[in-house]
């Protein structure tokens, strides 16, 4: 395949992925918006007004960046894991596997599809948050950078999950038992300065903590941890996941017999 053909193959996968989540928008776009609206009402307005300030910010301003990041993480992951596993389940992944499309293009195509949904939902949730709180962007490069890298990392993780999955149970285990606890314990709702020494040290092993804090820094200018360290951590994880995902595709694990 020449470069032009590779570009056509890549854009075909991305277009198909975007078409898929737009076609089923009541399942992909509406639920996260409703969930986040409830979070804003309950944690931001009702409970938040009683909490007062967190890290010198009104609680709704503190929690909003975390909630936006939460929707980006879950939607990037969910898009790739469900789309790729769905293709495996219906066996239409074979359409791609018999074609000359290189594995790295298959990988980047699915990942960009996942990022599109993650960022799209993130944007909708950001617009929604403006109804509940006022923001002024502290750092546009940090905000955009961390959003892109987070969406990338969780799209890659979703793809790896889908490659290994043999049943629909297998694609819900990681989000339920790993992703959700990591998000809830990743500083979305509280500053880790509230935690004691041991729990604070344990929290530092949670990659989501770095993403949420970097994003919060980009939006409102406060963070519990070093921003450069956050980018390094997310970059390192993304590189590792990209290598693993590409290796699995090249090897044909659970895809070719």
């Amino acid at each position: 395949m020449n470069n032009q053909q590779k570009w056509v193959a890549f854009s075909t996968i991305v277009r198909r992925e975007i078409r898929r989540f737009m076609r089923i928008w009541p399942q992909t776009l509406v639920p996260p918006v409703i969930t986040m609206a409830l979070y804003f009402v309950i944690f931001g307005k009702l409970i938040g007004s009683r909490i007062g300030e967190m890290s010198d910010l009104p609680y709704i301003q503190f929690v909003a960046p975390g909630l936006i990041m939460m929707s980006i993480i879950t939607n990037s992951y969910a898009n790739v894991v469900s789309s790729f596993f769905g293709s495996k389940f219906q066996r239409n992944i074979e359409e791609l596997l018999v074609s000359p499309t290189p594995n790295w293009i298959i990988l980047t195509g699915y990942v960009v599809g996942g990022m599109s949904r993650g960022i799209g939902v993130g944007l909708i949730v950001t617009l929604l948050s403006l109804y509940f709180a006022e923001f002024s962007l502290h750092s546009i490069p940090v905000t955009i950078g961390i959003v892109l890298m987070t969406a990338l990392m969780f799209s890659l993780a979703g793809l790896i999950n889908a490659i290994f999955a043999n049943s629909f149970d297998d694609i819900s285990i990681i989000p339920t038992f790993v992703l959700t606890p990591l998000i809830y314990l990743g500083g979305v709702f509280y500053s880790i300065d509230l935690l004691g020494g041991l729990w604070k040290a344990i929290s530092l092993f949670n990659p989501i903590l770095y993403m949420v804090n970097a994003f919060r820094y980009g939006m409102v200018g406060i963070t519990d941890i070093n921003i450069v360290g956050s980018f390094a951590m997310v970059g390192l994880f993304s590189a590792l996941l990209f290598t693993v995902a590409l290796f699995l595709l090249e090897k044909g694990s659970r895809l070719r017999s």
Binding site: Q4, Q5, A9, T12, I13, R16, E95, L96, P100, T101
Partner: peptide, 10 residues
Amino acid sequence: TQAGYYGIPA
């Protein structure tokens, strides 16, 4: 879509 996987424009 299948044509796209072979590098054929839409």
